[in-house]
């Protein structure tokens, strides 16, 4: 029954963020309730289009400026039909992540069945061993593939984990302040989101530590309109504690490919669906 808040999300930003129309979610007259904004941001972000694909590149820079690259194709499939209205409770999802780079993880596949009410199911396919490994659910605030993005940035943070306050409405943004209900489980005391009013895209997210200092910042750097859906095609996460930043770029973004659900199974871990990975 949980819905998930879109937070500087890789998948959401790259694949899922989409609106039926550019101005469909306009709310200039009359202030929407904070819950409405939060839910709309989340639901619209994660469940538009019945599936999606993107070629994702990450450039990870460390504090010394040394860079590493990750490149992978993400396929997403939604359990809910595409016609689900944005306000509905969104259903389960499946993700297929096929790695192209770096060379030592080429052909590795990461499969996730994302559940709304329990831990996700995750598998990893290691091609050199032909091994389908089941992986334990991890702390959501663990780095995703060594980048500055966390798993939680990838798969979404449950709305129920934070309290939300609409602190300001500007010409362009709703400014939301979010405070974790269980502060021990996370490394921040609050985060602020600038949600674009027309598109419900989060344009900047800033995380604050116990001293009230900002230390982690997400920014959408570029937005493209793809098949009518505004889509973040470049974003950046900076983290002062880790040092450095990760810039993520989405290419070949496509929605509504008609991906079959069966693709998100052991069969396609061992036999990747090349027609969708090119």
């Amino acid at each position: 029954m949980t819905t998930r808040l879109f937070l500087a999300s890789i998948l959401a930003a790259g694949l899922l963020l989409a609106l039926p129309g550019w101005t469909a979610a306009q709310a200039r007259d009359g202030q929407p309730a904070v819950e409405t904004i939060v839910e709309k941001t989340n639901c619209v972000a994660y469940y538009q289009g019945k599936d999606g694909r993107a070629l994702v590149s990450m450039v990870i820079s460390d504090a010394q400026g040394r860079t590493r690259q990750r490149q992978f194709t993400i396929l997403r499939w939604d359990d809910e039909p595409a016609a689900a209205p944005p306000d509905s409770v969104c259903g389960e999802q499946k993700y297929y992540v096929y790695f192209h780079r770096p060379a030592d993880v080429r052909r590795t596949v990461f499969l996730v069945w994302k559940h709304v009410a329990k831990d996700d199911d995750r598998w990893l396919y290691l091609p050199a061993l032909d091994l389908v490994k089941r992986i334990a659910a991890s702390d959501e605030r663990t780095s995703f593939v060594g980048s500055h993005f966390f798993y939680e940035d990838v798969s979404g943070r449950s709305i129920a984990e934070d309290t939300h306050e609409l602190v300001q409405t500007t010409d362009h943004y709703y400014v939301l302040r979010n405070v974790p209900k269980n502060p021990e489980s996370v490394e921040f005391v609050a985060f602020t989101m600038w949600v674009h009013r027309q598109s419900f895209l989060p344009v900047r997210v800033v995380y604050y530590d116990r001293q009230g200092e900002p230390y982690r910042v997400y920014e959408a750097l570029k937005v493209d309109r793809i098949q009518g859906y505004p889509t973040v095609t470049q974003a950046r996460m900076r983290d002062q504690r880790l040092g450095g930043e990760t810039v993520i770029t989405y290419e070949r973004v496509q929605y509504n490919l008609g991906l079959p659900e069966s693709l998100f199974s052991e069969r396609y871990l061992r036999h990747p669906p090349r027609e969708y990975l090119r």
Partner: peptide, 21 residues
């Protein structure tokens, strides 16, 4: 977002719209 006491962080700082928005 300059350091501010908790509860008021970042309020005055508005990000520019990224290209495409």
């Amino acid at each position: 977002a300059p350091p501010l006491p908790p509860g008021r962080e970042g309020l005055p700082v508005e990000p520019a719209l990224p290209p495409g928005l």
